[in-house]
Amino acid sequence: MMPHDSSSSASDNVRAAIISALQEEKESKVRRYGRAFLKAISVGGILSTLIYFCWSSSFDSTWMTACGMLTGFLAVAFLLYAYPQVRLSIRGYWSLSRLSLFFLLMTVVTGIQLILCPHFALVHLSDESPFRLFDHVTNFYMSLGGMNLCMFLCGLTFSSIGTAIASAPIARQFAFSKVKDLAFVALLGLVAQSPIAVLQLSNEITIQFFFFWLLGSATGILFVFFLFKKIQELRSVR
């Protein structure tokens, strides 16, 4: 009955993935987790340095907290990903490796969002930033409906793009995912974006519009998830 065509390759994948997991279990934990920690420090360091050089004149303790959070999240994601486990991509099943990979990518995307669009934290530093890609977008959103709509649309736009980028490598997972699982992954996405929230909540002006950004961001993440789910399920049926 088995191994024929696709099931045969699935069988080979399982065997190889379990053998690989057994080898991971034998590896020194100190070396394994040490390597993961170093990766987190490196990526976090690069992102923090870029943020600092882009917004050095506004780089205060809140920005430092945000950068610290980014590095901390990266450490958690890298360590969970390094945990010895069977690394298989199964449709609809969110294993630790898939969740940690998503969290890792989403945290990196959050760092990039802070580099590209610090307006989330009401920093008007377009003059000093080398990346002035989204000024016209912000101006356009502001012209549509002021700060409320701008924050909502910014949350929607950036979170949608960011989630799409972070989800692309694990797109297969979305097919046949249960709604409660997707809600949990969306929550994870919002946690990864919390450094942006910290910046907004620390400012007496942006704190007034925080709810609109959060609403836009959550809508963007969920929209992309259900879009990916639909596309992947249609591809599976074909």
């Binding site: 009955m1 191994p3 099931s7 069988s11 399982v14 199964i90 449709r91 099943y93």
Partner: peptide, 28 residues
């Protein structure tokens, strides 16, 4: 073979492709 066959027999033709997922998930 036994396990894959067991899972495959419980799925109709429209959901046959789930046998691979379920097989992988069982071993995982």
């Amino acid at each position: 073979k036994k396990l894959f066959g067991f899972l495959e027999r419980r799925l109709n033709s429209r959901h046959k492709s789930f046998a691979n997922d379920l097989f992988q998930m069982t071993w995982m």
